[in-house]
Design a protein around this nucleic acid. Structure first.
Lengths: 192, 192
DNA sequence: TGACGAAATTGATATAAATCAAGCCATGTT
DNA sequence: AACATGGCTTGATTTATATCAATTTCGTCA
């Protein structure tokens, strides 16, 4: 798949389109990266200078809260991984990115991307759609976490992210769902 | 305070600036509204066609989950109230807006605002900043709700929103903090 | 101002999920 | 093939907070 194809795919997934010029502009800043299982793509304390488009594989974002690992998000094929806080605020990140499978991602340098936004209204629209999507999803997720039992949270997760539910290790799913691996095990066994 | 002053204040709060022309363009679409305590500013099932800038007073956004009322957000002076889901997706809202005090708000019709975004890069920047802010705040809030005890959530809330903490009724603060009014009462008494 | 209804407090009990503690099952290694 | 290692399961116990119930306090309006 060529970078230009990837730019189009990225736009399409967000419900927008790019003409050839914009797609080429955007494609020109992609940095392809092959990643292997277990690899850290963004380490604690680094400033996130890129967001990532996942072409192949599965990533998770996680952080430490009182010493325990909490998974914040999974991304698989054609989803976009970004550490909002660090990237937008240019602060060292506490949210790390890890590859859970071998795969291929495309790094999009954020400063260059923002420069393209100023040059191309189509790319600006793409960015606005990305932010709007992120906001809607984030609010829906918060809502799901309120007032749902462990079992309901698991069921919602399987429905919404079937790929991650199938491919990610249980302990990460458990921390994503704010429950212990023991509780996840019981939910899956139908005991909770 | 004139509409143009309000436009400037709005931009300043978001860390951007508007020149006179942009401020006047923006100000021209504001619709001033005096609100009284208990008044519903957006009812269930309506499509949110505006966002609001609060000049005076306190609002809350809330929805029903399994028949019980859950407060999602408070906004006081110079904060912006918007129902992301309904406004962006043009769907009937489940998230209602209510005034908790007598006050003054300025309605900003979203379609007109988006039209201004296409006309004025400064206003587009303002919108991007609004979305970015919303996203960062939403993610921080989600995080605060994970792994904090009732007491910690209350302490965080008081630190982050001292005005709302002082001015809003306890039962709404309790539902905002995902606890019962009884628990809030015990937290405040230092019993939890 | 007084009285009513809503909100806040306080106490007793119930419950979902965490924690603690083994044991089991895969997977990959020497 | 034996073994170690991490991940998953299962059971017993604990804990934070919800729920239920009974007062007390407060805000609002007649």
């Amino acid at each position: 798949m060529t970078p230009v194809d990837i730019a189009h795919k990225f736009a399409t997934r967000l419900g927008t389109t790019l003409d050839e010029q914009a797609a080429q502009q955007l494609a020109s800043i992609f940095v392809r990266q092959e990643v292997s299982k277990g690899e850290t793509l963004l380490a604690e304390g680094q400033v996130a200078r890129n967001f990532l488009i996942v072409e192949q594989g599965l990533t998770r974002q996680y952080y430490y809260k009182n010493g325990i690992e909490v998974t914040e998000h999974f991304c698989c094929e054609w989803e976009v991984v970004y550490c909002t806080d660090s990237m937008l605020m240019r602060e060292p990140t506490t949210l790390m990115i890890e590859a859970l499978e071998d795969g291929v991602v495309h790094n999009v340098p954020f400063d260059e991307f923002r420069r393209l936004c100023d040059e191309s209204p189509q790319i600006m629209k793409l960015y606005v759609r990305l932010l709007e999507d992120g906001l809607v999803e984030s609010l829906r997720k918060t809502d799901a976490q309120r007032f749902e039992s462990a079992r309901e949270r698991y069921e919602t997760f399987v429905r919404q992210y079937p790929e991650a539910a199938r491919r990610a290790p249980g302990k990460h799913i458990a921390s994503y769902l704010l429950m212990t691996p023991e509780s996840l095990s019981r939910v899956r066994a139908g005991l909770l």
